[in-house]
Amino acid sequence: MMEPLPLSRVYRFIEPGPVVLVTTVKGDERPDVMAMSYHMVVDDGDPPLIACMLGPWDYSFSALLSTRECVIAIPTVDLATKVVEIGNCSGADTDKFEKFGLTPVPAKKVKAPLVAECLANFECRVKDDSLVERYNMFVLEAVAAWVDPARKERRLFHHRGDGTFVVDGRVLDLKKKMTKWPSYIRD
């Protein structure tokens, strides 16, 4: 039997992707890094488009709004506690790279740094900001992407919206069943 679910909890069931880190840098200020779980793929083409939600309550918001660029870094489960702690403080008064022992690496196409400890990093530029004022949503275009093939830990983690997280687990290989969408079968 189904029971009513408060509408404020709907997102807990459709959270689209792993927790990520977003780096920004504004002018000559030190770079900042924030934790984020509100994002989604908008277009999986070349280049991919990623929508994400940042608002004025986020220290990184003004940097992204003014520079129109950032890096989305993909941490693995071994960084989960550190990522949550990053989300618990503000770059307004904390050098998060220093406090949490993260290594900023110069990006090739944007000023914001990559995060060396992450599995992957996507250099992004704002493609569309027409939804920012109404929904705090930026549409980002990935302009360069990096992955660390030597990284042993590859499991990502997903926020469930209530302070708990789910870690990637067993992989279901259903490639042979993907007859309608063979283009999604990639290496």
Rank of each mutant, 00 (worst) to 15 (best):
Y135V: 01
E3V: 06
N88C: 09
Y38W: 13
V132Q: 01
H39W: 15
A80F: 08
P6L: 09
E69A: 03
F165A: 08
R68H: 09
V115K: 01
G27T: 11
E15T: 14
P106D: 09
C118H: 06
L79N: 03
V166C: 10
F138H: 09
T179E: 03
A63C: 02
K175A: 06
D46N: 12
G87M: 07
L54D: 08
P18E: 06
P47Q: 02
T76E: 09
G55C: 14
L21V: 12
V167F: 08
V132Y: 06
V83Q: 05
K152W: 11
S62K: 15
T103R: 01
R186D: 04
L65C: 10
G45W: 04
P4M: 06
M1P: 11
R30P: 12
D129F: 10
W181M: 15
C124R: 08
G169K: 14
E85Y: 01
N136F: 13
K127C: 11
V41M: 15
Y11M: 13
I185M: 09
L5R: 15
D43S: 14
D95M: 14
S130G: 14
E133C: 08
L140G: 00
L7F: 12
D129G: 14
E29Q: 13
C70L: 10
K109R: 15
G55F: 07
F157W: 03
F61M: 14
V20G: 07
F100G: 12
D58H: 13
L64S: 07
M178E: 10
D148S: 03
P16Q: 15
D93V: 12
K127M: 09
D129R: 10
V77L: 06
R30T: 04
V132S: 01
L114D: 01
R160C: 06
V166R: 11
D58C: 00
I50N: 01
E69G: 05
P4N: 02
L79T: 12
S37Y: 07
G163P: 02
V22P: 08
G91Y: 05
V25Y: 00
V33C: 03
V171P: 06
R186I: 04
S90P: 03
I50C: 05
P18C: 11
D46K: 07
R9H: 01
E3I: 09
V167Q: 08
R170I: 13
D129P: 08
V105D: 03
E123A: 02
K152T: 07
V22E: 06
V139F: 00
L7N: 12
W146Y: 14
C118N: 07
G161T: 03
L174Q: 00
M2I: 12
P56G: 14
L172A: 12
G163K: 06
Y135E: 11
P31D: 12
R160E: 14
A144I: 02
D93A: 09
V41P: 03
D148N: 15
P149Y: 07
R12N: 12
P48A: 15
R186V: 13
F61A: 12
E117Y: 00
A142M: 08
V167C: 09
D128K: 12
W57E: 09
A73H: 10
T81F: 11
D93S: 14
L174R: 00
L119E: 01
T23E: 00
C52R: 04
F13R: 12
D173T: 06
R155V: 10
Y59N: 02
R154G: 03
M40C: 08
D44V: 02
V84I: 13
K111P: 04
V105P: 03
